[in-house]
Design a protein around this nucleic acid. Structure first.
Lengths: 235, 235
DNA sequence: AAGTGGTCTAGACCACCGT
DNA sequence: CGGTGGTCTAGACCACTTC
């Protein structure tokens, strides 16, 4: 990390999640944070801003910085990178790799990944279980020029940890398109619902900080189990 | 407004939407914006930051600020306040007010609105049409202590314009919970789909800047017509 | 009136991209 | 190496809340 405002933001996030401010439901004043962390006011404010964007707190001019009501658990936060892996406790999640192979991009996939048709990519289909019950199906395509290697082992834990910590990719931004549709027979079987039952679908296009698309994925969620959460603040 | 960085952000947003940078796909440098708007670098950077958060651009250190690919139209932006009203051109939208009355909050609604049971509120049910075809059903509850007056006229255009421009409410943040479920018979009839067809559902809890909940709403979207878009950036 | 967050400036230095 | 964004500081003044 080595960047002050992010370190402070992460420290405060930890404190909030640990329940340190649950009694007061209020953060220390900017002045206090300035002396506590020994940085300038601007740096404190940038850190605090992260917490606002992450949905933890809201600021009231003249009054203070307050905790937002805790969202009930079991929500998948649309604003964070790691869908399941961050929001649910890791021991509740299991991943079954149904398919993993390399292939050439067809014209449709090439369009989505913003690359030439014929570009090599990894195709992965996974079934994700929460508390041993089928929760979602994830079909992902990674541009192999950017993600040169993947295997079942990596795919069965958190791919994103591998991309960030090992491949040192710096992920910049993403588009998520959310829809609902009738589920097909095959996927219905995997999720143990009936064919034509509803499915909650999230299409995800992810880019590096330099703007290159490296992943396109589609997640199909069990309609009775999945709840997506989006926390926004206007300022 | 009267705040420099927001004015600059809005001006740049307008320029981007107008297509001014479509050829270059690149914004002027910070230095250029500084001289163009006659403000300090920090102010330019705050303005630019808004555009990043609104999903218009991404920044690459050492290189510049670039336009993100346009999202196809017809998406409902989850990050903006006015769902339909902002994303689709206004003349395509029609709103039919099915019900509008005041009532006392029951215990469940009181919980969602974070108020006492028995608090007076407005209940509104609306059918929204896009291009003359049923698109979504919106059921909203407003705390009457905060929104003291509403009528069919207001409800059939944009409620939020009224809240912001006329009532001078300052809206702070919101929680959106997105799910999918089988649609009921009544709503199926309204949306002209079959009972038990999928529905895309967004529950929305909206707060003022001071943290007070003033609205709880539920939107039920036509599963073949609605696409929600969430643009996120990590920094 | 005191406390607390919001806006703005000016300037320094660092990190990364491209030539 | 020049161009361009990223981080950080120090200080001034404004706006809103609370008492």
């Amino acid at each position: 990390m080595a960047v002050k405002y992010k370190e402070i933001a992460d420290a405060l996030e930890q404190e909030i999640r640990s329940g340190k401010y649950d009694a007061a439901r209020k953060l220390p004043t900017e002045e206090e944070l300035i002396t506590q962390f020994g940085v300038s006011r601007n740096t404190v404010r940038r850190a605090v801003n992260q917490l606002v964007n992450r949905g933890y707190i809201y600021q009231v001019q003249g009054s203070g910085m307050f905790l937002r009501d805790k969202s009930a658990t079991d929500y998948i936060n649309l604003g964070s990178l790691r869908g399941l892996t961050k929001d649910l406790s890791p021991d509740r999640i299991h991943t079954e790799v149904l398919d993993l192979h390399t292939m050439e991009a067809g014209s449709e996939t090439a369009g989505r990944l913003n690359c030439e048709a014929g570009t090599m990519l990894y195709y992965i289909k996974r079934l994700r279980l929460v508390d041993e019950e089928p929760f979602s199906i994830e079909i992902s395509c990674f541009n192999k020029n950017i993600v040169p290697y993947l295997n079942k082992d990596i795919a069965s834990s958190s791919i994103y940890s591998y991309l960030i910590d090992d491949l040192k990719l710096s992920i910049g931004f993403a588009d998520k398109v959310i829809t609902s549709d009738q589920i097909g027979v095959v996927n219905a079987g995997l999720l143990q619902v009936k064919a034509l039952d509803p499915a909650l679908i999230v299409e995800n296009t992810v880019c590096l900080t330099n703007g290159t698309v490296f992943e396109y994925s589609q997640s199909i969620f069990h309609y009775k189990k999945a709840k997506l959460l989006n926390r926004i603040s206007f300022k």
